[in-house]
């Protein structure tokens, strides 16, 4: 790390990143904002952003928030115990298991979602098996449930890894110290383990909630065209309606939404840290 603290070489070493950030983050962001606050004739307007109040769009945003929230919650409920099991295991064995959880991420995201489509379809793999066993078929494809399932499946690793990381960083002796001072297992968990893993929980929530809120691929494939999320609406503006101004305006709304969420999470993090 000493090398990078040298004041003279630091800007030089950072220059590739600065260039990258400029071209791929700042310029696109500036373009989105430009399109968002202008109309077709190029004059300044807030109309695009205000369009979010249209009932159809508002409903899509509400649905997106709800489904993202449910998915994040399910991910958390599944990931926390898994993270605890992983962090309590011996290193050799848990590396193997962590790899198992990451393995699906090596496959293309669209491909994996497409697989769920063939599994869940009306005459898909699951229903064929059910029919063979003389069990009633399930109708899950093209419902909100299918979207949540897709989100949880795709984003679960992003919740497990940060939680596992923060849990495995807790020194065994901290837990022993709590036990030593009279705390039973539950008290130790609530007062020590849980608060110390808050940073992992926060980054897990961020890493699941944001992609879940903005996704349009999962809802397109598993929700059919019946259930529109805000991501689908924005996508349509760019790829079908060709109204870049409206698309950008709605994107800005979504960005503001995410920003507010991150601020709330940050506040919860620091408060969690102090209150324990």
């Amino acid at each position: 790390m000493k090398l990078f603290k040298n004041n003279k070489t630091a800007p030089l070493l950072a220059s590739p990143y600065i260039a990258w950030a400029l071209i791929f983050i700042l310029v696109p962001l500036a373009m989105v904002i430009y399109y968002g606050v202008t109309n077709a004739s190029g004059s300044f307007t807030f109309d695009n952003i205000a369009m979010i109040t249209e009932p159809g769009y508002l409903k899509a945003l509400g649905r997106s928030v709800l489904l993202a929230f449910i998915s994040t919650l399910v991910c958390f409920i599944l990931a926390y115990p898994l993270g605890m099991i992983l962090s309590s295991m011996k290193l050799a064995r848990n590396t193997y298991l962590v790899t198992l959880f990451i393995l699906p991420m090596w496959m293309n995201f669209l491909l994996r979602t497409l697989t769920w489509m063939t599994l869940l379809e009306g005459k898909g793999v699951i229903n064929t098996v059910l029919e063979f066993m003389h069990l009633p078929p399930i109708h899950i494809i093209n419902t909100s449930g299918a979207i949540v399932l897709g989100m949880v499946y795709n984003f679960l690793p992003f919740m497990i890894l940060p939680i596992y990381n923060s849990l495995s960083r807790i020194d065994d002796n901290i837990i022993n110290a709590a036990r030593d001072l009279g705390a039973d297992s539950l008290q130790t968990f609530l007062r020590i383990t849980l608060p110390l893993s808050v940073p992992g929980i926060i980054s897990g929530i961020t890493m699941v909630f944001i992609p879940a809120l903005t996704t349009f691929a999962i809802s397109t494939m598993l929700g059919g065209s019946k259930i529109l999320l805000i991501g689908n609406i924005i996508e349509q503006q760019f790829t079908q309606v060709y109204d870049w101004h409206l698309g950008s305006g709605l994107s800005i709304v979504l960005m503001i939404f995410i920003l507010i969420n991150m601020i709330i999470e940050r506040l919860a993090d620091t408060e969690g840290g102090v209150l324990g």
Binding site: I174, A177, L181, G276
Partner: peptide
């Protein structure tokens, strides 16, 4: 007997203080 039931306390090698609590809260824990 579980450690929390024993009438003894331990000072650990690397202190093992609760980093999310201040000093008063650490001491008050037990």
């Amino acid at each position: 007997m579980a450690p929390n039931k024993r009438q003894l306390n331990t000072v650990f090698q690397k202190y093992a203080l609760f980093t999310h609590m201040n000093i008063a809260e650490n001491i008050a824990f037990g």
